[in-house]
Design a protein around this nucleic acid. Structure first.
Lengths: 344, 344
DNA sequence: TATTAGCACTCCTATTTGATGAGTGCTAAC
DNA sequence: GTTAGCACTCATCAAATAGGAGTGCTAATA
């Protein structure tokens, strides 16, 4: 970091900012005019030569201007980005009806974010692992089907239909319901362990096998922990020529469409370290191979009680980091409010 | 149709089949050798000239071979396609776990179909409008929230959380449950009309306002009738050069990602006319503007009792119609079985 | 010593040119 | 009615060419 003098830093900053705008390699003459350093292009050339040797910029080919390397971007993001608190005004299109199902809210968030940033976006459903069981109910659907309804603290409702050999009588159903609720309510998923289960089976007496089936279904349902991922704006990548060739575009869009790989961005991002909850992956820093020519910025949004999700933006390396990080910060604070009301 | 003699038809057939394979304009010499007509290229040329005048084929430019026009493709699909009952063997990769939630099954179907055809695919959730209410249950979630669970005949479960001013006592809850079930069970959505509703409110007595809220919620939930559309294999279009340029690819993928426009393919397809339930849109025949360079083949799958959905394949005009239509026919019959088991 | 002007050099990009070849349309002969 | 022959068109490709942006180096300058 200190290997750079103040002047070199200014020049690097200028190079990167110019490149972010134009996407073209930037030459010494441009910098000479762009900055207020009042230096001739020749001097700039010397400095640029140094910067290249230090690995902050690279030349796509001899006699071309310079473009930032991953290291350059990294330096820019870490040290040069002024986190001027973005005018919040232009982010107010994040007014989202929060009466809808969560699924729709998340889709809408992804879409809005994609439209306002012109990058591809992703958002995951929140992880409820720390969430507690609030209410369980078994009902006799018909002679050989049982319906289990499970409600978690955050009002997330899950259903499971359980096939049955023969119908349960009313009394048994009642007993099971009481048993399930009294035992499981208030427990989070990791807290439902073998001991709890065997104790329940014991108490169920004649119906222990049914309890077994039900418990299996319940735990299966709960631990499904389906990390839903929603993406939007995949086609925005066509706005950036450096990502638009068939090969790259196809791979990238495929990754966004198939989604599983995106999950790797989540776990990393949830292990938040800095204060902001914002992570930036530049080029090969990303765990996803097909995104080596992209930058990915992820943020963690947190609802109540450790219920966390991830929202991310995928764009070219020369993305507008300032705007993106501002948008994400803004969004994550807003998301908090959106989920206050009951939703499925 | 009868404007074409037998020989012209044979030549048109040969042109189209050759073009489907190669994607290149096909010349008179190729046809002269390819067919068993034993005609010289010169004769073929004359015939091709006629075919062009009649609008079945076009020349991309002077001194290029001919490619089929939309009219040509249409003729091919309507008259030349031998519906040889495809060897079913190679379609057996449609083994799908049917224990999963329907949403996942549909996603999986779309994915599998995309992989096996190398085209983009879409599938809609089935329309349950003709489906009947099987079971309704209200439960007291906590002091000011009611949980409504509605199960339809096909075991589709819906939940709705209803905010409440003050808790209901147990007896009232019981009465409401009985009332709801006895009145609504067995009714399909269109059958729940104003008369039914006002009658229910009457019977509810003191709780008529609560019944109102519940009914609103129920009907809202039921009529949500969200036509979910799932797509897959969007990036397959990059396998066809004629669709791969940035502009077209971007528009197409956007349409597939945003999905609403795809709904227009559904309503049309549901108004089935031919016996097969398979519809083919060639180029501009499609209601979707961005698909003017594509062909779209849709099929209607029908579960029990008028519960219908649409599955479709989007590819280049020179798609393998035989294979595609075979796959769809095969798939729609198989889908029938897949949903037999309970699913959410 | 740091800066700058000047210049040769590199190499990307766009444009031109010409050769090639596939394919056609037409005419005349079979 | 069919075919051979031939002139013509036009996309495609490769090589050649010119232009220009930008560099690195050297020598002069403050």
């Amino acid at each position: 970091m200190d290997e750079l003098g103040e002047r070199k830093i200014k020049i690097l900053d200028a190079i990167i900012r110019t490149y972010l705008e134009t996407g073209e390699p930037v030459g010494s003459r441009t910098i000479s005019k762009y900055t207020d350093l009042n230096l001739s292009s020749a001097t700039i050339r010397n400095e640029m030569s140094d910067l290249e040797e230090l690995g902050y910029i690279v030349q796509p080919h001899t006699s071309a201007g310079r473009i930032p390397s991953d290291k350059g971007y990294r330096f820019y993001v870490d040290h040069l980005l002024k986190n001027k608190d973005k005018e919040i005004s232009d982010m107010k299109d994040f007014v989202i009806e929060h009466t809808e199902r969560m699924e729709n809210v998340l889709k809408q968030v992804a879409r809005t974010l994609a439209q306002s940033t012109n990058y591809a976006t992703m958002i995951t459903s929140p992880k409820y692992s720390a969430n507690k069981v609030k209410f369980i109910q078994l009902s006799q659907l018909d002679d050989n089907q049982l319906l289990a309804v499970i409600v978690m603290e955050a009002n997330v409702v899950k259903n499971k239909i359980i096939p049955l050999e023969e119908p349960l009588d009313n009394e048994a159903l009642l007993r099971l319901n009481v048993l399930l609720n009294s035992t499981l309510n208030g427990l989070s998923i990791p807290e439902i362990n073998l001991a709890t289960i065997s104790k329940m089976k014991e108490q169920a007496g004649d119906y222990s096998d049914i309890v077994g089936i039900v418990l299996d279904a319940v735990s299966e349902t709960l631990s499904q922990e389906e990390l839903e991922i929603y993406t939007s704006g995949a086609t925005n990548i066509f706005k950036y020529p450096e990502l638009s060739d068939s090969q790259k575009a196809s791979e990238l869009i495929y990754t966004l469409e198939e989604k599983q790989q995106l999950a790797t961005l989540v776990s990393d991002s949830l292990s938040d370290e800095a204060g902001t909850g914002i992570q930036v992956y530049i080029g090969n820093e990303s765990p996803i191979q097909t995104m080596k020519d992209c930058s990915v910025v992820t943020a963690t949004y947190e609802l109540s009680q450790g219920v966390k999700g991830t929202v991310g933006i995928i764009g070219p390396k020369r993305m507008d980091y300032e705007k993106v990080m501002g948008s994400l910060k803004e969004l994550t604070t807003q998301l908090d409010g959106i989920f206050k009301k009951p939703s499925q």
